[in-house]
């Protein structure tokens, strides 16, 4: 009996293996489980919240499900399930990721919302606008409009040398921080900010530096993303002189190595304690 069973087991192993070999024949076809979803397509009304905004996430593929978080963490299948457009009334970061029974999950994609900052009386540019990417002119950075990932959408100021401007407010006021929005699109030679320096003036004549500003990490690989740096100011002031420098030499890993990079900015948001 034992002998019969061993033979049967061997036969089965052979036979099962044979079947599995048969399925191996299809191994030269791409397997669904090895393919990753594309990250959801995100659409927003505006990421600067005047009264309210909204966000829509899409991945039009049968049985794909989108999950999201609001605390900056990476979504998993226990996170909030996205069903309908989300209405937004306060600042925050929304992170989305798509899942599917058969495919690998997508990468996460996030979008940040900002409160509308305080109004600026004037902005005086000390450097000329680049003719190729002048955005909407002198006020592009303080017009309350953020850009999209399309760097030609008219909301982006593009420069290849340091950009300097003086911003003046109606009155002396307490500025808690400034948000500087910028774009990364390495395929188009658009890199992150290299340096920032900010001086402030309470009397509108004499300027002092606001103190050390954290460095932005260098770009080490190809990427396309919307970025923002929040810089603490915590000063009473009437004017600010802001100097933002582009990457002067593109790193070695990139085809444009050694050349100056483009710097694209869309908006400067000046936050008080109330906004």
């Amino acid at each position: 009996m034992r002998c019969v069973f061993v033979i049967a087991a061997l036969l089965c192993m052979y036979s099962c293996k044979k079947n599995s070999n048969k399925s191996d024949l299809s191994d030269h076809f791409v397997q669904t489980k090895d393919v990753q979803l594309v990250n959801p397509k995100i659409e927003t009304k505006s990421v600067i919240i005047d009264s309210s905004s909204s966000i829509t996430a899409l991945l039009d593929l049968d049985q794909a499900v989108i999950y999201y978080t609001t605390d900056g963490s990476e979504p998993d299948e226990t996170s909030n399930k996205y069903t309908n457009s989300i209405s937004i009334s306060k600042p925050g970061k929304y992170t989305f990721k798509a899942f599917h029974l058969d495919f690998k999950p997508s990468d996460a994609i996030d979008v940040s919302f900002f409160n509308k900052g305080v109004d600026v009386r004037s902005i005086a540019l000390e450097t000329a606008l680049n003719k190729q990417y002048p955005g909407k002119g002198q006020n592009t950075l303080v017009n309350g409009e953020k850009g999209t990932l399309n760097f030609r959408d008219g909301e982006w100021l593009g420069v290849t040398e340091p950009f300097i401007a003086i911003v003046e407010f109606d009155d002396v006021m307490y500025i808690e921080s400034i948000d500087i929005g910028y774009l990364v699109n390495t395929d188009s030679w658009i890199f992150p900010i290299q340096d920032i320096s900010i001086d402030f003036s309470e009397d509108g004549i004499n300027y002092m530096p606001i103190g050390p500003i954290k460095k932005i990490e260098k770009q080490e690989s190809n990427s396309t993303k919307l970025e923002n740096i929040n810089i603490s100011v915590s000063k009473r002031l009437k004017k600010m002189k802001i100097k933002i420098s582009n990457v002067t030499a593109i790193p070695k890993w990139h085809q444009g190595k050694g050349n100056p990079a483009w710097l694209f900015m869309d908006e400067w948001i000046f936050n008080t304690q109330k906004n």
């Binding site: 599995s20 399925s23 299809s26 191994d27 076809f29 791409v30 397997q31 489980k33 090895d34």
Partner: peptide, 10 residues
């Protein structure tokens, strides 16, 4: 060795 692999051609 003998698990039935999950094969699904894309």
């Amino acid at each position: 060795a003998y698990s039935f692999d999950y094969h699904k051609d894309l």
